[in-house]
Design a protein around this nucleic acid. Structure first.
Length: 469
RNA sequence: GGCCACGUGGCGGAGUGGUGACGCAGCGGACUGCAAAUCCGCGUACCCCGGUUCAAUUCCGGGCGUGGCCUCCA
């Protein structure tokens, strides 16, 4: 089966045809580094990691270029830096915030089994540079020259009226947008939907020499950075652009406007993919509700990264997810069941089952793929199951780490537990089941569960135990 | 108000114009002193109302509900 992907641009699922099968190119909007990544941020990272793995499988690992940026210039970063490091010069404080957050982000997603993208550019590296690559400043200059952007009060603004099909991705017309606009329009804008490409910096704020003859130093608007990084690393037209569904408008719409007008192309990327939103325990995740869940917190609570990953993939990427504790428990059980099978090896990827690949090639139908995994598990086909799990980024690494931690806990309490188990076995031998059960209950309260097995050779009852919490 | 998704059994979640995927939970059985683990078995679900059709959960229309965007939140 050929790879099919749903394209937001056409609102249809269609067969994917790369521009150049020798170099399949994908761009995904990455995080703005000012705070811990939350579980909603994890979704596109995981979803597009699966797509990256699939593309590498189909076209060959050396024939796929995946760019996921780091946004390290943004007003939210400035605000956070000023708040957290009030006694440090702003630029230095910003560096502290972005470096620490970026490091944390990488640690978090590594636990989720996410491969490194081919390139992970930082926005600040693409404002200006001297190697001839596309930059935000060069894009802005081009847009001004071509009449798609104008200078007003030290800002550079994109003139949306200069682009006839602005709004095509999000399927809305300029009239509709203007009618529905609820924001106060800055007086220097020609049209209410015009958006900022460049804005002046206040003293002390990060600032770069401005384009288009503006004397005051400034900084880029949000949308231009993705256009610049995508253009610099993937060229004017590439295959796939991904991100959260909330970015469709205005971010992606504006990216398209900038890139297409600057490059004179009819599309920026052929396929636009958007992952659905995530709710927590049936409610919208928000700071005011206090249900903001970070990846870091989930990991700290003892959930192996692979459980988070599986939990994410149990829902199709375009569907909304209700992220619940119950779902996590279920994912943990499923994974534990698979990894308990004898002979499972996730490093041998020679036989990834056709059924699993077919499911993934059908617009990344991960729930279907997971159902196939269940089938392989019940057929005890550990060869195909292991291969598919490894392929999906569920290679057991974080499960093993969690098991090691449990083993350490077990070791630390073994001296308390073992005498109790011995006493219970003795009670059992003399058929004092009341005492035997009392000891088992006592252990259960400590989070220890027991298993009695009969030794086939000696006929003796033996008890194994494990820490369940 | 405009635009867009989505509504399947207790829960999660595929899929299909006509034989009730799959998983978790639950129930029954085997095993066990009893459990646990394991194995075997068990479910008459497709938001509502119309329409098309021999036949609709699946197609069409309307309604209701949930969520998203229209505010530099993935």
């Amino acid at each position: 089966m050929a790879l099919k992907l749903y394209n937001t641009l056409t609102r249809q699922k269609a067969e994917f045809e790369p521009i150049d099968p020798k170099n399949v190119r994908m761009y995904v909007c990455g995080p703005t580094v000012y705070d811990y990544a939350h579980i909603g941020n994890a979704r596109p990272v995981i979803v597009f990691d699966v797509l990256f793995r699939l593309l590498r499988h189909i076209y060959g690992p050396e024939h796929v270029t995946y760019v996921r940026n780091i946004t390290d210039v943004d007003d939210k970063i400035n605000a956070r830096a000023a708040r957290d490091y009030p006694d440090v010069p702003l630029n230095e404080a910003i560096r502290k915030v972005t470096e620490a957050t970026e490091k944390q982000f990488h640690a978090d997603i590594a636990a989720l089994g996410v491969l490194l993208p081919t390139y992970e550019p930082r926005a600040t590296e693409y404002i200006r540079r001297d190697d001839g690559r596309e930059t935000m400043v060069s894009l802005i200059e081009t847009l001004v020259e071509r009449g798609n952007a104008y200078v007003a009060e030290d800002h550079v603004l994109f003139d949306v009226s200069s682009m006839p099909d602005y709004g095509r991705l999000s399927n809305r017309s300029l009239d509709e947008m203007e009618a529905g606009a609820r924001v106060e329009v800055a007086p220097y804008k020609k049209g209410p939907m015009d958006f900022v490409l460049w804005k002046p910096s206040k003293p002390g704020e990060p600032a770069w020499p401005s384009p288009a003859g503006i004397a005051t130093p400034g900084r880029p608007g949000w949308h231009i950075e993705c256009s610049a990084m995508a253009g610099a690393l993937l060229g004017p037209v590439f295959d796939i652009h991904g991100g959260g569904i909330d970015l469709t408008f205005p971010h992606h719409e504006n990216e398209i406007a900038q890139s297409r007008c600057a490059h004179g192309t009819s599309v920026m990327a052929n396929v636009w993919m958007h992952n659905g939103f995530l709710q927590v325990e049936g409610e919208k995740m928000s700071k005011s509700l206090g249900n903001f869940i970070t990846i870091n917190q989930l990991l700290a609570d003892g959930w192996p990264g692979e459980v988070l990953r599986l939990n994410m993939l149990r829902t199709h990427y375009r569907q909304p997810i209700d992220w619940t504790k119950k779902g996590l428990e279920e994912s943990r059980k499923i994974l534990a069941g698979w990894f308990a099978l004898d002979g499972l090896d996730t490093t041998d990827r020679t036989s990834i089952s056709r059924e699993v690949l077919d499911a993934l090639e059908d617009d990344l139908n991960t729930p279907k793929a997971i159902a196939e995994l269940h089938g392989l598990a019940s057929a005890k086909d550990v060869k195909n199951l292991g291969a598919a799990l490894g392929f999906l980024g569920l290679d057991g690494t974080t499960l093993r780490k969690a098991n090691e931690r449990t083993a350490e806990t077990a070791q630390s309490i073994a001296s308390t537990v073992i005498p109790l188990i011995t006493a219970r076995l003795e009670a059992r031998k003399r058929k004092d089941f009341a005492e035997s059960d009392r000891i088992r209950d006592e252990l259960a309260k400590m989070g220890i569960s027991l298993k009695d097995t009969k030794n086939k050779e000696t006929g003796e009852i033996e008890t194994t135990w494990e820490v369940t919490r």
